[in-house]
């Protein structure tokens, strides 16, 4: 089945098409959830919720890139979960972790994506979301501020702190390279 047939089948509620769509985009969408969630369980919850939302709203999809449409749903679901659980997250003060040297970011090339995602998951909740939205999804700080209901300056600050934290982690992983 082609993607169009799968989508049409999903619009008609055919279980086979739904499963085909899941198999086609499940891994990619699960990756998105993994980046936004702190734990595997949170990612799983977001993944299920978002996929159900995709199937229930697939009638609204008209034209364009279907993967991008799905991605937006997954990102929005992840953001909604972040908003919902915002008050329960522990906010860490990472001022002391700031690193002044931007050249140390080259060490990322030696890490696998999964390791990088694991590092991102260790970021504080707000930093992680802003980092994902800016670096991965490409939203600017104004858009991020509107999405997360925070100030634009806050978004910039959190992104900077997120990067500093990542650099610090990279430095720990490969101290020789950063030492040079």
């Amino acid at each position: 089945m082609t993607e169009v047939e799968i989508i049409e089948g999903c619009k008609k509620g055919k279980p086979a098409c739904q499963e085909a769509l899941y198999k086609l985009y499940g891994s990619r969408m699960k990756g998105i959830c993994m980046r936004y969630a702190k734990t595997e369980f949170e990612a799983e919850d977001t993944f299920q919720e978002a996929f159900i939302s995709v199937f229930r709203n697939i009638q609204n999809f008209r034209e364009g890139s279907f993967p991008n449409w799905m991605r937006r749903i997954f990102v929005n679901t992840a953001i909604n979960n972040y908003r919902r659980n915002k008050k329960h997250y522990d906010h860490q003060d990472s001022q002391e972790l700031e690193i002044q040297d931007d050249n140390q970011l080259d060490g990322l090339q030696e890490l696998t994506t999964k390791e990088i995602v694991a590092m991102i998951n260790e970021l504080p909740e707000g930093y992680r979301v802003v980092f994902n939205l800016n670096v991965v999804e490409g939203y600017n700080h104004r858009e991020i501020g509107e999405m997360l209901d925070i100030a634009e300056a806050t978004s910039r600050s959190q992104l900077s702190k997120a990067k500093n934290l990542l650099k610090k982690k990279l430095e720990k992983i490969n101290p020789c390279k950063y030492a040079s």
Binding site: R28, G31, I32
Partner: peptide
């Protein structure tokens, strides 16, 4: 990270 995939 954009292309990162994880098997459900």
């Amino acid at each position: 990270l954009y292309d990162f995939e994880e098997a459900p």
